[in-house]
Design a protein around this nucleic acid. Structure first.
Lengths: 210, 210
DNA sequence: AAAAAAATAGTGGCTAACCCTCATTTTTAA
DNA sequence: TTAAAAATGAGGGTTAGCCACTATTTTTTT
C-alpha cells in the first residue's frame, strides 16, 4: 500500500505536535516534515513534494493562504488543507475560491483531519462543517473576490486596514467619489448590502487578501 | 517515587491532546483527567484534587482566571498553571497577583510546560520567559476589556457578531438608546474615537471575548 | 480600429454609528 | 443601610458609509 506523504505547518509548537501525532497514528500516513511558519512550509513542500500539505491559516512571514497560492500555481498535484480557528463562511468561501482542497476547523481537527487528508488525497474537496452547510459551499460557484478588479482589490485591502474612504482617496490621489464608486461596485459583486457591510466583510477576510 | 497528579483544561481538542501527550511522556507525571471548558475543569479539579492544574486562559463558560480564583480560594494546596496565547505583561501581572503559580505561553508550552509543572510542584512560581519571539502579540486590548461591565462585554460580543444597535436592542428587550449608551461607555473605556471604531475593534478582538 | 472593461468624478438622499449631555431605577459593595 | 456602580432611557447634533443614478476618460481586449 502506498503511503500518503504529508507536510504539516503550524506556528504553535504544541498544536504542531498534536497534528503530527494525530496523523502519525494512521499506518498509511507518513508525516515527512514539519514547518513553523509559512516561509519554511513553502521551502519544505517544494523540497519534499508531499501528497498533502496541511497549513495553518495564521502563520508568521507567510500565512496559509499565501503558501497555498504559490503551491497551487507551481505544483497543482499537491493537495492543500487549510486549518483555521475561524468558522467564518466568508473566509472559507474565499479559500475554496482559490482552489484549496480542504478546510478544517482547529476545534474539529482531531476528529476531522484524518478524514480530510484521505478525502483530498482521493481527489475530492473537504470542508469540516455540518452537512447542510457543506452543500452550500460546494455548490457555490461564486468566485467572489476573484471577480474583483485590481483597483477594487486594492481598495478592499485598504478598507480591511481600517482606512476610511477619505484616507484611501487622499493616499491614492483620487476623488472620494471614485473610492465610493469602487466600494459600491465591490458591494454589488460580493452581494453585500446594508450598513457597514463592506467594512465587516473586509475585516473578516483580511487574512485572505494578499 | 510519588507521581505528580495533573488535570489539564483547554477548549481546543488538538491542543489538549498535545498537552496531555507532552505531560504523559514524563514517567513521574500522571494526567488523571482532562476538561474542555472552565466549568468542567472546576468540577474535575474539585473531584480529583490534583497536585497541579494547567488551565487555558480563554475557555468557554468560565475562563482560566475564573477557575483559578475559585480553586485558589477553596483548595490552596492545588498549584495552578495558566496557559495563554497572549504575552501580555498586564495579564501576567494580574494572574500572579491572584496567586497563580505558573504562567506559560502556548507558543513555548511544548518546551516549558514540563519544567513549569515541576517548579510549581516544588513550591516555586514559574513564568515562561520571552525568548526571541514576536513582540506583536503584546497588546493591551485584553487588559482594557477586563474593565468592562458584564453588559458592556455582552454588547461588545454582539457587535463583534455583526449585530446592529437595533438588533441588539430588540434581542435583549432594551431600548436602542440604552445600547447606544453602552456603546459610548465602551468607547470611553477603550479610548476609541471616530467612525465605526468600535465595530473595527470588536471584530479585531472578537477571538479574545469570553 | 472598434468594442468592452475599468477607472475616474459627480449629485442627492438616507441611515447607522458616533458624540455630548442629562436623568431614573436597579444592583452591588462598603 | 447608605454610597457607588451599573443598567436603563432620552434629546439633539455630526459624519461616514450605503444607494441609485449619470457621465467622461483611460486601458484592455477583440
Amino acid at each position: 500500500m502506498k503511503t500518503i506523504k504529508i507536510i504539516t505547518a503550524d506556528d504553535h509548537p504544541l498544536f504542531l505536535k498534536g497534528l503530527r501525532d494525530t496523523l502519525a497514528e494512521e499506518p498509511d500516513f507518513e508525516v515527512i516534515d514539519l514547518a513553523n511558519n509559512g516561509q519554511q512550509a513553502l521551502e519544505k513542500i517544494e523540497k519534499w513534494q508531499p501528497d498533502v500539505a496541511t497549513l495553518d491559516l495564521d502563520m508568521p512571514i507567510l500565512n496559509g493562504i499565501e503558501v497555498a497560492k504559490s503551491i497551487l500555481k507551481n505544483y497543482p498535484n499537491i493537495k492543500i488543507i487549510l486549518l483555521s480557528m475561524h468558522k467564518d463562511t466568508d473566509i472559507i468561501r474565499a479559500a475554496m475560491a482559490l482552489g484549496i482542497h480542504g478546510y478544517v476547523f482547529k476545534d474539529d481537527a482531531v476528529n476531522d483531519l484524518v478524514g480530510a487528508v484521505r478525502t483530498v488525497f482521493g481527489g475530492e474537496n473537504y470542508i469540516s462543517v455540518d452537512t447542510n452547510k457543506k452543500s452550500f459551499f460546494l455548490n457555490n460557484d461564486n468566485e467572489l473576490i476573484g471577480e474583483l478588479t485590481k483597483m477594487e482589490k486594492l481598495i478592499l485591502r485598504e478598507i480591511a486596514n481600517q482606512k476610511t474612504t477619505k484616507q484611501i482617496a487622499d493616499e491614492h490621489f483620487i476623488s472620494t467619489k471614485t473610492v465610493e464608486n469602487h466600494r459600491a461596485n465591490i458591494c454589488k459583486k460580493l452581494n453585500l448590502h446594508g450598513n457597514n457591510s463592506l467594512l465587516k466583510f473586509a475585516i473578516k477576510v483580511s487574512d485572505s487578501l494578499v
